[in-house]
Design a protein around this nucleic acid. Structure first.
Lengths: 192, 192
DNA sequence: GCTTCAATATACAGATCGGTATAGTGTTGG
DNA sequence: CCAACACTATACCGATCTGTATATTGAAGC
């Protein structure tokens, strides 16, 4: 039950990697529709020809961007979910991972949620990636909560986590992810 | 302490109203950058000249769109926050209002959060409207929670609410707003 | 009655958009 | 040696983008 494994059949040459890096940074910071392929190519130090030789179309570049983020996030999270530790600690580790991730990757909120705001069409090839990650996160919280003997808390944990990411992106109040983690801890403590 | 009252000095003629309605619908459903002024004018049954005579620029149209949504949401919510009722019920009424709002206005999540995903520049005139509404919501939860003798729950209520709106937009699981409301109720019951 | 103004219709400007075409360079592996 | 391939450089295509220009109509208010 790993990553959804969609299309994603592009040759990852050095230039392609630079393109993906630049696209990821620009898409996340400025939005997908606001960023043109010319800018991406320029930032990557690559000609447009190369960009199109590797990715074929901007849409595919968007797909690769999101699939890459999804893959990286799951790997990042897996590193921090030591299966030896009790489920309750692993639940809190999810919030800690989100905090660490946001420190490393910037604070404009969740790239999946942001991309979803720009994609209306459910038949867009990026759509299953977005929904897939969120479903996977809900599944993770469900498993962990059940293992912690608090199965009914899965939905609440998901909502706290999503809310924290949004609040963090909007910079409404200080350390929303830490706040969500603390609330999760308190809720889990009640089930003991 | 009402709406932030930004610029917003345009003559609201009948044609302008139709433009704002069409822009709101299209911006929300397809995203701001994905919708052109030609389409908005066509959908509103108005010439582009009229659109520019009223709004001057697309950016101003975006500002009006968000300011209008903000205003409507606060009025919508005020109608459902009977000051005679106890604070605890009014907190739950916020979640009920969000549910009713989403039924009426569609389910692509929060228009402020979605707009924020497309606006990088904090100096964009729409930025204060977005952040303003969220700050106001946190202030509302803070007041209500304090009045209910559960001041420390304000942040959690905000996170549950934001998370529910996101989850609702992504359609991850059934009735996230109802779930958030139920969790809020449970948390408030503990403070009694 | 004449100005004011909201509105129409249409055409166009300049920039940028996603994407393609053509020609050539440098490296690598059979 | 040479074919394959990743890549550069540059120029171009048609479409779409925001925004403007021109000329006209119809209704309301002093």
């Amino acid at each position: 039950m790993g990553t959804t494994e969609g299309p994603r059949r592009i040759t990852m040459t050095p230039a392609a990697r630079r393109v993906l890096e630049a696209a990821g940074r620009l898409f996340y910071e400025r939005g997908i529709h606001a960023v043109g392929v010319d800018l991406i190519a320029a930032e990557a130090g690559v000609t447009k020809k190369t960009l199109y030789d590797r990715f074929g179309a901007k849409e595919q570049l968007v797909v690769e961007y999101l699939a890459d983020r999804d893959e990286r996030w799951r790997a990042f999270l897996a590193e921090r979910l030591d299966p030896a530790r009790p489920a309750r600690e692993r639940i809190l580790a999810v919030f800690d991972a989100s905090h660490a991730w946001s420190v490393r990757h910037g604070s404009k909120g969740c790239s999946m949620v942001n991309a979803h705001a720009e994609i209306d069409d459910p038949s867009h090839p990026a759509h299953p990636i977005i929904v897939g990650q969120k479903r996977w996160m809900l599944g993770l919280f469900t498993e962990l909560a059940q293992e912690a003997g608090a199965g009914r808390l899965a939905g609440t944990l998901m909502l706290l986590h999503e809310g924290a990411l949004v609040a963090h992106g909007l910079k409404i109040f200080a350390d929303p992810i830490g706040h969500a983690r603390e609330q999760a801890r308190a809720l889990l403590a009640q089930v003991s």
